[in-house]
Amino acid sequence: MAIRILNRNDWDIIKFGCQKDGLCSKFGITREQFFERRNLLSHPSLKEIGDLILCDIFMVGDILVVVGPINSLKWVRTIVEDCIAHKILPGVRIKFVKEAIMLVVEERRLEALRL
């Protein structure tokens, strides 16, 4: 993991637990709520998110390390905040991201046809 971070310039560390500067302490989420919401960020969800937006996501306890393009880092942070702070299932956000990617691809295709 360290080699991947050193080889790429863009990375983000997301603290989503009850530690200082964590999302739970920021949004006033109790320890019990945290354990319930952390389960939303299960391994298959993180893998699907990483594959979709072309980044690597590593979860260690209550810290996520995201390595990839800067836009991917922003998407992952938004998805994690929604899961932890607002209890939104990651599948909803993944669907939204897929639709946004498809719009960009379609716009690029149309632009290429105009040229």
Rank of each mutant, 00 (worst) to 15 (best):
Q33R: 11
T78D: 12
V76D: 03
P69L: 11
I57F: 03
D82I: 00
V104L: 13
R108Q: 11
L103Y: 12
F35Q: 10
G22W: 08
W11M: 11
L73M: 04
F58S: 12
E32Q: 13
G22N: 04
E107C: 13
A112S: 11
V105G: 05
W75L: 13
I70S: 14
V97K: 10
E81L: 03
V66P: 06
I63F: 06
E106Q: 07
F34S: 05
A112N: 12
Q33M: 13
D51T: 04
E81K: 12
D51H: 08
D10Q: 15
G28S: 05
D56R: 10
L64A: 02
E48W: 00
R38E: 11
V76Q: 00
G91A: 10
A100Y: 11
T78F: 11
I3F: 10
Q19L: 15
F16L: 09
P69D: 05
N9L: 12
G50R: 09
A112Q: 11
R108H: 13
A112M: 14
I13G: 03
R31P: 01
I101V: 13
S42F: 01
V105L: 11
D56A: 10
E81V: 02
L52W: 08
R4L: 15
L54W: 03
I101C: 01
K95P: 01
F35S: 09
L23D: 06
S42I: 01
V67T: 03
I70K: 09
I94E: 00
F27H: 14
S45R: 06
H86G: 01
E106V: 05
F35R: 11
G68Y: 07
V66R: 02
V76P: 04
L52Q: 06
V67I: 08
L89N: 05
N7I: 09
N39Y: 06
P90T: 02
V104H: 07
M1C: 06
D56H: 08
F35T: 05
C18L: 15
K20G: 07
D10C: 15
W75V: 12
R114F: 10
M1K: 13
R37A: 09
L113T: 00
T30V: 03
E32H: 12
L41H: 00
E106D: 13
R93L: 12
M1V: 12
R31W: 10
L103C: 10
V97M: 11
E106M: 14
G22D: 09
L46F: 04
T30W: 04
K74D: 09
F27C: 07
K20D: 15
V105A: 06
R31D: 14
L54E: 08
I79G: 02
V66T: 05
L110N: 11
V92G: 03
L89E: 03
V104Y: 04
F58M: 09
C18Q: 09
S45H: 01
M1R: 07
D62Q: 15
C18I: 15
R31N: 10
I101N: 00
